[in-house]
């Protein structure tokens, strides 16, 4: 079964808690990420695997480099449709839907899952962390739209290190 290794990236210091027995426990703060091969970009961008996000979405810092008509086409809302805001931690955003005209690759540097015709959201603006640091923007790979369908997300704990591990199988 083809597999790509997801990176369990620590995104903050661990949170110490105390069990009723008195034992200290350090709770990790991780995200499962892969690399994304995207059209018209020289180097990959990070994608957060988030099955709690209804759709995949790209911040403006990424999608602004794609070419309309070459890399994607717009999927405008039907007249009268009131689009909800997209929501993520600490940020609400408006968006539009697009379909990619170029393949998108989810990869780990060696294995790659190639997706054609991905339907995704292009957010208007960027998350607060980007506005503050200009750091390379991160996309979210969500539940529907053609990225994760037909895959299994496997989450485990490494027996040796005790750390979370993740993989995408298809």
């Amino acid at each position: 079964m083809p597999t790509l290794r997801l990176t369990a990236l620590g995104v903050g210091a661990g949170l110490p808690v105390r069990e009723p027995s008195g034992t200290a426990l350090l709770l990790p703060r991780v995200q499962l990420r892969c690399l994304l091969r995207l059209p018209n970009l020289l180097v990959p961008r990070d994608g957060i695997i988030d099955t709690g996000s209804p759709f995949s979405w790209f911040p403006e810092a990424i999608w602004s480099q794609f070419r309309r008509g070459t890399d994607y086409e717009d999927l405008p809302f039907e007249p009268g449709t009131v689009a909800p805001n997209g929501r993520t931690a600490g940020w609400n955003f408006t968006f539009r839907f697009v379909r990619f005209l170029q393949p998108i690759g989810l990869h780990d540097g060696s294995s790659e899952l190639v997706r054609d015709g991905l339907i995704a959201q292009f957010a208007n603006g960027n998350p607060p962390s980007f506005a503050r640091t200009n750091a390379p923007a991160v996309a979210v790979i969500g539940l529907w739209g053609g990225a994760l369908e037909g895959t299994n997300v496997r989450i485990a704990t490494d027996a040796t290190t005790g750390r979370l591990t993740g993989a995408l199988e298809w």
Binding site: V11, G12, L42, G90, S129, A135, P136, V138
Partner: peptide
Amino acid sequence: VHPERIVALYLGE
């Protein structure tokens, strides 16, 4: 080197 050759990451959510 080309600016994009530098690997950079924001350490946070």
